[in-house]
Amino acid sequence: MTATADTYETPDGRTIGGKVLEMRNITLRFGGVVAIKDISFDIREGEIRAIIGPNGAGKSSMLNVINGFYHPQEGEIWFHGEKRKPMKPYQIAKQGIARTFQNIALFKGMSTLDNIMTGRFNQMKTNMLAQMLWKGPAEREEVENREIVEKVIDFLEIQAIRKTPVGALPYGLQKRVELGRALAAQPKLLLLDEPMAGMNVEEKEDMSRFILDVNDEFGTTIALIEHDMGVVMDISDRVVVMDYGKKIGDGTPDEVINNQDVIDAYLGVDHG
């Protein structure tokens, strides 16, 4: 693999395309604290890109920069070959970036179906008057989007809990519904913040399979933060390693795992 080439082949034979998102020299400060320091990396079309690092390394801050919760003091973000102006999170969502949260952020008072239907918000266009009348355009649009949502529900195998309020669901299923809500938007770039946190081995296997299937079937570009090294090494194509807000490694899982800085960050340096 060469870093300058426009495309590259993965070991399992998939061709990864050009840059979807490029972060150039991003620096993010909170007062005197530097959360992210001069980091550059790119995410390419169709790849699964992992961001790893010890606690407090700035991984979640990086996702928050990508979807617009934080605005970096320095640096540029390029999305699909265009420099992105500072935007609100909902404007970035309209551009096709969806995400899940580390601590589940579902709409607790709504059913699974309604939660995932909410993911279709950007694709639904009927105006208020049509919504009031319901019969006609609003109902037609609702049914069209329901069909897409039902495909997501089938895909994630959550048919049985369609009408259950999500607050009543166990943790693993809630994580799955949240993934479904992000998938329903049919995003160009899917950000997953610790999709496997707090799961047992079986649930982790399920989630890994869903992530791989999403990437495989829909060709969705995925960036994920994860602490489980086994999972990261198994499913990701390229890995960014952060520590104390700095990038200390970037490359395929094999390259990263043999990087001395990365080993030092995770295992500590012998000062003796």
């Binding site: 609100k88 999170p89 909902y90 969806a98 579902l106 993911g119």
Partner: peptide, 9 residues
């Protein structure tokens, strides 16, 4: 969940 609503658009 207003934050999650915002990232949905």
């Amino acid at each position: 969940m207003d934050i999650a609503a915002e990232i949905i658009g």
